[in-house]
Nucleic acid binder design. Sequence first.
DNA 1: AGCCAGGACAAGT
DNA 2: ACTTGTCATGGC
Length: 271
Amino acid sequence: MAKNHDKCIKISLPECFDLRDTLECGQCFRFFEKDGAFTVIAGGCCAQIRQTEDGKTLLINGGDEKFWRSYFDLDRDYKRIYDVIRKNEILRESADAAKGIRILRQDFFETLCCFIFSQNNNIPRIKKITARFCELFGREIGEGVYDFPTPERVAGLKIEDLAPVRCGFRDKYILSAGEAVNSGRVTAEKIEALDYDSARELLKTVKGVGNKVADCVLLYGCGRLEGFPRDVWINRIMAEIMPDGLPAELAPVGGVAQQYLFHYGRNIKNK
DNA sequence: AGCCAGGACAAGT
DNA sequence: ACTTGTCATGGC
């Protein structure tokens, strides 16, 4: 019964941080906006988070500072990354429009499941499916708030247990993910020890995980900034502005460039 | 009402 | 190695 005793955490922010852009750029699904603040469920806690008007401070109600510093990747120098990407003239416009986006360091298993849910799906529904999945199989960590299910729990589920989740054909893929992680065959520790391509191949041994989902898990769930998930949006944009692919010098931070382009393509350019 | 969604897989060239 | 139909559901 962890009641929030309104102990508000204040974190002074580095350059290149925008709470809204970071949460809304499609890398996480367990948040919603309410009363001008964002409620985020992660790391076994539910927190109300807002960024001050001047953009310099993050006010967080819930959890502890150490966790959120890690979650928002606050100790990595994104200004330097932004500057590197910005040197490329083709990417400059999108970089400037999305410079506040950071790559979240989310839980490995949660990221894996969420991006399995994401395949051939839209963001509003991904969020609903994820919420139902947590309500059904996650531990209650507050009033009506549920943690993400553990690999152990998911590994013990049957296909029919997932019917109320309404995730369609992805049900069997979720079970595969539960088995793979719970058995220790695919874990964050193993991934960390592998080079990028090997890590990607290991992830792809999970049914329902292909190149795109694997890249998302490596980027959003393993802190591998060289991950460059290619979805329909990115393919469309890249074909248009960079038909030969990302320049080699940007490969180490390809994931950040990808997020800049995704944000740009969806929020700025049209629609 | 119908198209399509931050894809993956299997079967077919 | 590339292309295509299919998958389950519901958002817009």
